[in-house]
Simulated scan of single mutants.
Amino acid sequence: TKVPTQQVSAQFQQAIVQQFPNVSIIDLALVLQILNDLISKIGFVVRFMAGLSISTGIVVFIASVFMSKYQRIRETVLLRTLGASRKQIFAITALEYFFLGILAAITGILLGLAAGWVLAKYTFETAFHLQLLPIIILVLMVCLLTVGIGLINSRGIVKRSPLEVLRNEV
């Protein structure tokens, strides 16, 4: 049964025990509260680990973008030598990083969805529901972050003349 307060529950339990002494009464509210606390703690741990994984991935991503700066220098020098303007180089760089962001986001989302589906179906034995809005927001955020970091990283390269860059390289 469900009763509104603890006091009413205690009175109800006493009345049942007095009337039916061989009936055992188990207060499920306490059991449910303990289970709810346990599930909340497990959820916090899962969210924390997901946040830690995402943070680590962002740090690795930023490091890889900065490591590819030397390759970008050579490409930019070649494009500038061939007559490309700063706008064209920024557009090429932005498109390159946009596609890199799309590829990273789609790969990560597909792996996450596959893992979520496996957990839902085989571990928790529940139905898996796909929500498109968070996925679209995540793809856009990853693409914007990738393009932003890439353009910030490439900003100093475009400002220098090709001759100056080649002198520093040799």
Rank of each mutant, 00 (worst) to 15 (best):
A15E: 10
G150A: 05
E75M: 06
V65P: 08
A10H: 06
T56Y: 05
T1Y: 03
Q13V: 05
F90R: 09
T93L: 13
Q33N: 11
V45P: 01
M141K: 03
L79C: 02
L133I: 08
M67C: 00
K159A: 11
I73L: 14
A84C: 09
A50Y: 08
F66K: 04
E75N: 12
A84W: 00
V77W: 08
V65E: 09
A91H: 08
F99R: 00
L132V: 15
P134Q: 11
Q6S: 12
V158W: 06
L100W: 07
Q33C: 01
R155N: 09
L111I: 14
I137A: 15
I152F: 15
I58Y: 08
Q7P: 04
L166F: 08
L78A: 13
A105C: 02
L113E: 09
R167T: 13
L133F: 01
Q6Y: 09
I62P: 01
P21N: 04
I92C: 09
K87V: 00
H129L: 13
T76R: 07
Q6W: 03
I42F: 09
N22D: 15
V77G: 12
S24I: 03
Q71G: 13
C143H: 01
I89N: 03
F128I: 04
T146M: 11
F99M: 10
L111T: 09
K159M: 02
I92A: 15
F66H: 05
G108N: 08
V165G: 00
I102Y: 04
S68C: 02
E75G: 03
L151N: 00
L82H: 13
R160H: 13
I42V: 07
L38V: 08
K159R: 10
I73Y: 10
V142Y: 03
I106H: 01
R167G: 06
L133Q: 15
G83I: 12
V77F: 05
K87R: 09
T56S: 11
A120R: 10
C143D: 14
S85F: 04
Q6N: 10
E96Q: 12
Q71M: 06
L35I: 06
E164C: 03
L163R: 12
E96S: 15
P134N: 07
A120H: 03
V17A: 15
P134M: 11
F124Q: 10
V77T: 05
A114W: 07
E75C: 08
G57Q: 10
I136D: 04
R72A: 12
F48W: 07
F124C: 10
E75Y: 07
I73N: 05
G101I: 05
L28A: 12
A29K: 14
I137F: 06
I16G: 06
L145Q: 12
V158Y: 01
V60P: 04
I54V: 13
Q71T: 00
L163C: 01
R72G: 03
Q7C: 00
S68M: 09
R72W: 14
I42K: 14
W117N: 02
M141P: 03
E169F: 15
Q19F: 06
L95H: 03
S55V: 10
I54W: 11
A84D: 10
G116D: 06
S161M: 11
L166A: 11
Q18P: 02
L28Y: 01
R72H: 11
S64L: 12
I58N: 05
I73A: 06
C143S: 12
Q88E: 15
I54H: 00
P4V: 00
D37W: 07
F98T: 13
R86G: 13
I62W: 01
L130C: 03
S154P: 05
L166V: 14
F44R: 15
C143P: 05
T81S: 06
R80P: 07
